[in-house]
Amino acid sequence: MALTKHDIVDQIQNQLGIPRNVSADVTETLLEIIKATLASGEDVLVSGFGKFCVKDKQERKGRNPATGEDMMLKPRQVVTFKCSGLLRNKVNGK
């Protein structure tokens, strides 16, 4: 099961002992800061967690899955994530 925004708000509320509406505002503000930073083309580095990067994808050949027709896909930007060594070790039980 995935950790949802609702779960994050609940955990912040419980661990910090703050009202739910404050916890929700903190969570929303943090996510908006991350989204705005990535939208401006900057990377987001969270020490001990990882780095969100904006990468440029070039134009490339693709295929319409419904018709099988070849087509050119437009250049675009994507967000990638590279986890820190600390997070990788924790996930792997080290």
Rank of each mutant, 00 (worst) to 15 (best):
V46I: 15
Q58D: 13
I12K: 09
G68H: 03
D43H: 10
L31P: 10
I12Q: 09
R63G: 11
I8K: 05
L3M: 12
F81R: 06
G68E: 06
E32P: 00
M71P: 08
D25G: 11
Q77W: 05
K90Y: 11
K57R: 12
T27D: 04
E32H: 06
V22Q: 14
R60N: 08
P75C: 04
P19E: 00
P19K: 02
I33D: 02
C83N: 10
K90C: 07
N64C: 11
K55N: 10
V46S: 01
N92M: 09
V54I: 12
L86K: 15
N89C: 01
D70H: 00
V79Y: 07
L87I: 08
L30V: 15
D10Y: 09
Q15A: 13
V44F: 09
K51F: 01
T27K: 01
K90W: 07
I33C: 10
F49R: 01
F52I: 05
K55E: 14
C53G: 06
T80A: 09
I18T: 10
N92F: 00
T37W: 09
R63A: 10
V91E: 03
S23D: 07
A39K: 14
Q58P: 12
C53Q: 15
A2Q: 12
R63W: 06
L31H: 06
G93S: 08
K35G: 10
K82M: 08
K35S: 13
N14W: 01
N89E: 15
E42L: 06
I34G: 05
N21K: 14
H6W: 08
I18P: 05
R76I: 00
T80V: 05
V54E: 09
Q15N: 14
K57E: 02
K55P: 05
Q15E: 14
G68R: 03
F49N: 05
D10I: 10
R20I: 05
L31C: 07
L86A: 13
Q13C: 13
E28M: 07
K51I: 07
A66F: 05
T67K: 00
D25F: 01
R63Y: 09
S47L: 12
A2H: 10
K55Y: 03
K74R: 09
T67G: 04
D7I: 04
T4M: 04
G48N: 10
V26E: 07
K82N: 13
V78T: 14
T80M: 08
F81C: 09
L16V: 12
N64I: 03
N21R: 15
G17Y: 03
S40K: 10
L45N: 14
I18S: 06
L45Q: 11
R60K: 12
D10V: 11
G50K: 02
T29I: 11
E28N: 15
D7T: 07
V22M: 11
A2I: 13
A39Q: 15
A66H: 13
D70A: 14
L38H: 13
V46M: 14
